[in-house]
Design a protein around this nucleic acid. Structure first.
Length: 295
DNA sequence: ACATAGACCTGTTGGC
DNA sequence: TGCCAACAGGTCTATG
């Protein structure tokens, strides 16, 4: 479920605990997630220091000193949880000690911080669509190599977007979900970006480019919408991060108010638009949009 | 190249 | 209340 903003929020939440920490031990509580764990997964990480946590699209990465680049994907239901690593043996603390749904805790990283404090970072994933893999020595992996442009920063502008979509017959919604073009959008933010841009999810993607493949007003609007919706969601994640940090340490999902997603039948939030949000299915997945102001 | 459907899993929700 | 179908934020594979 996590799209780029959620993954970035997870990265920022894990960063203070993981960067610079030494991995004392790694527990894998089953042989696989979506894929089998790499050979010697725990052994190749144990005893090593985590240099940096990164993110590419919806992938989290951890560079390991003298070791491999760890690539993690949260799939649809993955989350991380930070726990105090000191063994607790307080009588009556049973409830606090147990996590909310330990049934799907699949990986536990036991860490020692630079000042000796111990923590555990627990990966939980009920559906097990998530995975953990190692990149090769050059930090490359087929899952990362084909990814398109990040919708953060300023790289994605109208000109670039028009070039990416020129000639495409696929509907805009499908083009936005194509990770080879733009990397990191998912089902929610694709719908949200199209609403912000006032463009129909059913519109042929190529129609936002000019005949020469150059930018148009529509392409500029969509590029701006994508960047702004992603930036706003990351900001929202950051604000909930502070709350979660004080609660139970779980990272992965945050409440966010959406303009169209999951609002079928409700009024469009665009001022003076009297449309009602409609739900359609594209490529087997729900799309939400306003048929009045999105054309 | 492109569109669609199915696959992988478990949990939650809504209708009857 | 119980049951069951539909659906869920992802992406890889196979098929046309």
């Amino acid at each position: 479920m996590p799209e780029l903003p959620e993954v970035e929020t997870v990265r920022r939440g894990l960063q203070p605990v993981m960067e610079g920490a030494r991995i004392l031990k790694v527990e894998t509580r089953r042989p696989d997630l979506r894929f089998p764990f790499p050979e010697n997964f725990a052994k190749r990480l144990s005893g090593r220091r985590i240099l940096a946590l990164g993110r590419r699209a919806k992938y989290l990465t951890a560079s390991i000193e003298g070791g491999p680049l760890l690539i993690c994907h949260l799939g649809m239901s993955g989350s991380f949880r930070i726990e105090d690593g000191e063994e607790r043996s307080i009588p009556g603390d049973f409830h606090h000690e147990r996590s909310r749904d330990a049934a799907h805790d699949h990986v536990v990283f036991h860490l020692a911080g630079q000042h000796g404090g111990k923590t555990r970072v627990v990966f939980n994933d009920p559906r097990r669509f998530g995975f953990m893999l190692f990149a090769d020595d050059a930090g490359e992996h087929p899952m990362l190599s084909g990814l398109g442009v990040e919708p953060t920063g300023n790289a994605l502008d109208g000109g670039l977007l028009a070039g990416l979509f020129a000639g495409k017959q696929a509907p805009l919604k499908a083009a936005l979900l194509d990770q080879r073009l733009i990397a990191g959008l998912g089902n929610i933010y694709a719908s949200e970006a199209l609403w912000r841009a006032g463009l129909s999810p059913r519109r042929t993607a190529g129609t936002i480019a000019s005949a020469s493949g150059g930018p148009t007003a529509r392409a500029e609007r969509l590029a701006t919408a994508i960047r702004s919706v992603v930036a706003a969601a990351i900001a929202a994640g950051g604000s909930t991060l502070r709350d979660y940090a004080q609660a139970d340490g779980s990272l992965g999902y945050f409440q966010h108010s959406f303009s169209v997603y999951d609002r079928e039948g409700e009024p469009c939030r665009k001022p003076d638009c009297n449309g009602l949000i409609r739900r359609i299915v594209q490529s087997g997945r729900s799309t939400f949009y306003c048929p009045v102001c999105q054309r």
